[in-house]
Amino acid sequence: MKKLSKVQLKQQALVMSVADQIEAEALAEIPGMVQCWFDVEYHLFPGSLLLCFQFEDDSALNAAQPELLKWQKKLSAAMLKKGVILKDMRKHLTFTLLGPDD
C-alpha cells in the first residue's frame, strides 16, 4: 500500500471523524445495524467516497431501507460542515450486509 501524502492524511482524518459521528448516531437509531465502514480512493476524493452501513441480516436491512435517504442527507450535511461538497449524495452512502473484508 502506498504511503498517503499530507493532504490525503487530512482527508482520511476528515472522513474518519464524519464516519465516527454518523456511525454513533446510526447505531443508536437503527436496529440491527452492526457497523459503519468506508472505502475511498484519496486521489479521487470526494467523488470516490463510499460509506456503508452494515446490517446483521436481511430483515434488519429491509426494515432500515426507507431511512436510507435520511442518512444520505445526514452524511452530505456533515461533509458540507467540514467543507467537502458531495455532488450526488445518493452515491456516497449505502446499506449492505457485506463487511469491509467481503
Rank of each mutant, 00 (worst) to 15 (best):
L4F: 11
S5M: 06
K6N: 12
Q8W: 09
K10N: 10
K10L: 12
K10I: 03
Q11P: 02
Q11M: 13
Q12A: 14
A13W: 00
A13R: 07
L14W: 01
V15L: 11
V15E: 03
S17P: 00
S17K: 10
V18Q: 02
A19Q: 09
A19I: 05
D20R: 15
D20Q: 14
A26V: 03
A26K: 00
L27C: 06
A28C: 05
E29M: 09
E29C: 10
E29Q: 14
I30R: 01
I30A: 01
P31L: 09
P31K: 02
P31Y: 04
G32K: 05
M33A: 11
V34A: 05
V34C: 06
Q35C: 15
C36N: 12
W37K: 05
W37N: 04
W37T: 04
V40F: 07
L44M: 15
L44C: 14
L44H: 13
F45A: 05
F45S: 11
F45Y: 14
P46W: 04
P46D: 07
G47V: 08
G47C: 08
S48Q: 07
S48P: 08
L49V: 07
L49I: 11
L50Q: 10
L50N: 07
L51E: 01
L51I: 15
L51C: 13
L51A: 10
F53V: 02
F53Q: 02
Q54N: 03
Q54R: 14
E56S: 12
E56Y: 06
E56M: 10
D57G: 01
D58N: 08
D58C: 05
S59I: 08
S59R: 10
A60T: 03
A60R: 05
L61W: 00
L61D: 00
N62Q: 11
N62Y: 07
A63W: 00
A64M: 02
A64F: 00
Q65R: 13
Q65I: 02
Q65E: 13
P66Y: 09
P66Q: 06
E67A: 09
L68F: 06
L68W: 03
L69A: 15
K70P: 00
Q72N: 03
Q72H: 02
Q72Y: 08
K74A: 15
